[in-house]
């Protein structure tokens, strides 16, 4: 039985989200499975002021580089997926994937207490 008060159209912007990570920053982006990777990059452009051509998105943890023209669904990007963002450097190459995890950070600070509450 469908509930009319809860719309379930495929355009529903709450359909899914992905977590785009670079260094210590995570961008939560709402999207739909039929969107292309290019559309995702256009959303990112608004947030980070980097043109789509200078962005590369890589699906974690298998490090598959995502294709601009294909949809998220086609490339098995699912709800809550983690996608690494890398940017083009001055020498025209893309930087390596760099996602800092809080655990790495704890290890590097080992011994200085570190309790938060």
């Amino acid at each position: 039985m469908s509930q009319p008060s809860r719309p379930k159209s495929p355009d529903d912007q709450t359909a899914m989200y992905i977590r785009v990570k670079r260094n210590k920053t995570t961008y939560f982006l709402q999207c739909v499975p039929s969107e292309t990777v290019l559309q995702i990059k256009e959303k990112l452009e608004e947030l980070i002021d980097q043109p789509v051509n200078d962005q590369r998105l890589i699906l974690m943890p298998n490090r598959e580089v995502l294709d601009d023209s294909k949809s998220l669904a086609d490339q098995k990007v699912e709800n809550d997926a983690v996608v690494a963002l890398t940017l083009r450097k001055d020498d025209n190459e893309f930087e390596e994937v760099n996602i800092v995890r809080p655990n790495d950070f704890y290890q590097s600070r080992e011994g200085d207490g570190g309790s938060n509450w």
Binding site: K24, T26, F28, E46, V100, N116
Partner: peptide, 24 residues
């Protein structure tokens, strides 16, 4: 999504999470 429609939440260790204001 415009920058103005997002909010940045910063953790104890200085990690940043950029999310929709609507979600926040």
């Amino acid at each position: 999504m415009k920058k103005e429609d997002t909010v940045k939440l910063i953790s104890a260790e200085g990690f940043e999470f950029v999310i929709d204001k609507k979600a926040a």
